[in-house]
Amino acid sequence: MNKNQKNVLLIGIILIAAVLIYWYTQGAEIFTKSQVLVDKTTDLDRMLGVENKEYVDKFVLGLDYAGGFSAAVAVLSGILIYLFRNKRKKIR
């Protein structure tokens, strides 16, 4: 493996690791969400014996997008590693 190939491999691994770490810290959801459920129960709600939850806008990365991105990075890295391979000189 030459220097260029090593760089591509390293960048690919770092990108995939970063996305997967971010996905994990976001709650390791399977599906990407555009809204999340938030508890907004007030003291008055509690006195009335009811709960109050609301969907609020928030992007939560899911394994669908994170996995897709990781797969795309892996494929692209593979192509680049192939293209950066050493070409053998023909010996006459």
Partner: peptide, 15 residues
């Protein structure tokens, strides 16, 4: 005074 914050009149909570 507290219930007025939600709505006027008596309140009924149903769960």
């Amino acid at each position: 005074e507290q219930t007025q914050m939600r709505a006027p009149g008596d309140l009924l909570g149903v769960q």
